[in-house]
Nucleic acid binder design. Structure first.
Lengths: 341, 341
DNA sequence: TTTTTCATCGGAAACGTTTGCACATATTAT
DNA sequence: ATAATATGTGCAAACGTTTCCGATGAAAAA
């Protein structure tokens, strides 16, 4: 790899000292406009690119932020990362993207690796297996800027961005009830997750408000194996205590539900109605029947995470990230999976 | 940000010189086993983490590789990145991931930024707008390790990983013909793309072999706006010269086709049969009717890219990346969108 | 005994920046 | 006239590693 000219060579070419050239390129007030012009044009001519590591070493910042997500093949997380990139790229920041694959051990390894300062901050959504959060508290206690989104850690006093999980769970359930459902199942990834807790609370409160009592056997906790999830749901559908409505708290379980229904004699929405948190609108309307969705503002969530961090990292003396939860509401789009025509 | 102890402090604690400690931690033969043990245990006790920038500056390598893709919300590219990460993570490498959003200007900016050595190598799939490749040739001529996958640049003499685009296009088209199609449309993102060229050649040859003549008006070049694509396809379907089969060269256009068909009175597969390059098997079988797919080995392609680079970067004196195209075959899965029962 | 070798370790340079400080020269105030 | 102040630039240290080159002492060979 032929690395180009460095500051010293550029300075030699200009018959100036490296310090002057550095200051000129950084637009320091101490340098005359004349030399600034000369330096800049010569830098362009020789295509000078400052060495990022020398700069990072000296300034103790990397212009890089790490994004840690549970999986890549998810329209929600893809859009969040797109939103983050949209902002950070404007500030010249780079994105290290890691997937934990819903594995807490991988998450710990990644977080521990990040502790050496390779990134200036972390934006993350925890894995569904994460219950011990010592790796995250340690990070935060060291003063490492950390922002959570979607799947958050309430115990860590920093800024979190979520959607209105409780209300969405509540409204989604209420919608099912209004469509005549009396036995509504709740599908989740893990009981530990902040999103399942909040969405579940909304679900329970909607049931209560309608005078319905929750039935434990209608709660299904899923795993990472799609086939296994499909079979769990199918068993529920084929069982004696079959639900007439399903609220899926994550995208992939809605798809598993459609697969499961295909294995039964049931029809959506006549026999069973489905609503799900879902970010891929194009797919939602192509499913048969089209899926009623609670659409999280994924791109927007990413943007907000990034904006907050950019403010913290690019302004001189910023305070710590405040301990608060910022909620950006979802939209419910009613489609055929909950409406009998 | 409270950065932990550094080498000098660790050395002071041990009453040793930094050089000795460094060598001990790097398992140098010059250091006795006794002191190695002492150093390692003290390093663990103080949780010493070497500064990655100091190391990168000194060694002139970053243990980071950049991945440049046209879009994130694509099961194909998500899986490729997963495959890359699977390998690189084993070697302690980090991944900078950039999306060009199919925009060649963004692609150029990203590539130019990468020229400063922030990453040790680049794995990329070019945007659909890329015809001028000067930014990539410049990169390659500087000796920067560069690997292409899927959407490749034939003119740049380096290693490329693709699937058997020609054969898949050929076989896909042949399958449609065998199912009785006589007027087969070809959907593409851009005529410039390597994948459309190869897949189109396969399509043409299959037509020729069947004695069918290609009709230019059956080729549709799409854009980035989904709605616009849907309407282009709908017009084709509603027009006087309506095809009875469609080969879509990319995933998103298959979805657009399903949307378009929904806006017509046509039925799949009776009136129109569809086959597409497609990586999301779960979705393919959920579409109505389920979609016949040509499935690219996305994860595997990512793995192979990464393996090649890891060999080049971690072994001492490796030759340049050879100028060759490595093909990993796709699988055709026949589903309902091409079979009339 | 003297010389060589070997096993361990330390000093210092180097990687490419940024920046505190000093130092000229020119301008203004006294 | 001299002294004070801008204005523009250079020197050198620092960031935290790795590694070249010596240095030391002990063991082996002469």
């Amino acid at each position: 790899m032929n690395t180009g000219v460095n500051l010293k060579e550029l300075a030699a070419e200009l018959k100036l000292s490296p310090s002057t050239v550095s200051r000129a390129l950084n637009d320091s007030y101490e340098i005359s406009e004349a030399t600034k012009k000369k330096v800049i044009s010569m830098a362009e001519k020789l295509n000078y690119q400052p060495n990022p590591f020398a700069r990072s070493l000296r300034e103790n910042k990397s212009k890089t932020i790490a994004v840690v997500i549970p999986e890549r093949m998810s329209s929600f997380f893809s859009k969040v990362v797109d939103g983050i990139e949209e902002i950070t790229q404007q500030y010249g920041y780079h994105l290290l993207v890691y997937s934990t694959h819903e594995d807490v051990d991988r998450e710990k390894k990644i977080v521990n690796l990040l502790m050496n300062g390779r990134a200036d901050a972390i934006i993350m959504s925890v894995s569904s297996q994460t219950s011990d959060i010592s790796h995250l508290t340690r990070l935060h206690e060291r003063g490492f800027p950390l922002v959570f989104f979607d799947r958050i850690c309430s115990d860590i006093p920093t800024t979190k961005f979520i959607t209105n999980d409780y209300e969405s769970g509540f409204e989604g359930t209420k919608h099912l009830i209004q469509q005549g459902c009396r036995k509504i199942a709740f599908l989740m990834l893990s009981k530990e997750l902040s999103i399942t807790k909040d969405r579940y609370r909304g679900y329970l409160d909607a049931l209560k408000q309608a005078g319905l009592s929750p039935e434990p056997q209608l709660n299904i906790t899923c795993c990472q194996e799609e086939e296994e999830n499909i079979e769990s749901i199918r068993k529920l559908l084929d069982g004696p205590n079959r639900p007439d409505g399903i609220l899926s708290s994550v995208e992939k379980l809605a798809l598993a539900t459609y697969h499961a229904v295909k294995r039964t004699h049931l029809r959506i929405p006549n026999d069973i109605k489905i609503i799900s948190f879902f970010s891929n609108l194009s797919i939602a309307s192509l499913l048969n029947p089209s899926l009623t969705t609670i659409t999280q503002p994924a791109f927007n969530i990413g943007e907000e995470c990034a904006k907050l961090l950019m403010k913290k990292l690019t302004k001189p003396r910023q305070p710590d990230l405040p301990n608060q939860v910022i909620t950006i509401p979802s939209n419910i789009t009613i489609r055929s999976s909950t409406i009998v025509v």
